[in-house]
Amino acid sequence: MTHSKRIRTTLVAGVGALGMLALSACAAETESKSASDEITLTVPSWVGARANAEVAKVIMEQELDVKVELQQLDEPVAFDALNNGKADAILEDWGGSPKKEKLYVEDKKTIVKGGDLGVVGHIGWFVPKYYADANPEVTDAKNLNKFAKDFKSANSGDQGEFLGAAPSYTTYDEHLVKNLKLDLKIKETGNEAAQIKEIQQKYRDKQPFITYWWDPQWLNADIDLVEVKLPAYEEGCNVPETATDCAYANTPLQKYLNADFAKDGGDAAEFIKNFKWSTEAQNEVAKAIAKDKKSGPDAAEAWVKANKSTWEAWLPKK
């Protein structure tokens, strides 16, 4: 008899819990959240972009009384999230997913452009300065095969090792290596931090290396890298991707907004459209996060405190 009683107890408890769930679910459905008092920003995995988001969050929460949620999403999937309204804005896009951009911005019109971030992105191949000084010829991609053996590692066999980009980043390195017939093997570093760690370790030991690298990037303040000259970029030289045999184009980094949010987002949307800062400012915050290991909010708050004149211009006109 105690068995059945216990079962009944459990049943009652279970039904009670489920009922509560159902009720609360209904409650949640009926209250629609207004886009302007709570928004979600996507944060890709690189630190520079996190700096944008953290600063935007601090200012919006302090000045506009908008609750800002930051969600870690890689660049290409961020477009999907904006499309279906799960996130409201991307603050920094490097143009790495042209297909999705076309689909959502031009065809479906669920995402709208939000203007320049103010930072110009540059991607390229880089070697450390100490190595370039000793071997000036290395700075031209034509001569790279001569030096490939210097970059050898346990991973790359007889070829030179090329430190590749994180999986979600914009890159044509694989095609470049093939089309320029270079004796290099790309190491799939897995994420930005792993790549940075490896670069820092190699730099400290003054070892030669060649890497996918970019600016703005906070680490550039600490280490001296020299760019390797790839064949000059011309319009269309990277179409189709597999035929790419030229350098990366300079990219003015872009903001994107969910179309509904752009229309009805009020002050928050206005603020994001106005958000525009410099490479130096971004690097300052990014470095505080990545190198000094400050928490995102702390780093952003410090910058916000010191740069009132810069961000006051971003606030919507009353």
């Binding site: 999986p167 570093t189 897995g190 994420n191 792993a194």
Partner: peptide, 21 residues
């Protein structure tokens, strides 16, 4: 999962597939 920290091979393909959709 080690593909995320430079393990390469199949792991990084899954990560890339996820990241790039």
């Amino acid at each position: 999962i080690g593909g995320m920290i430079g393990g390469g091979a199949l792991g990084v393909d899954v990560v890339r597939g996820l990241a790039k959709g």
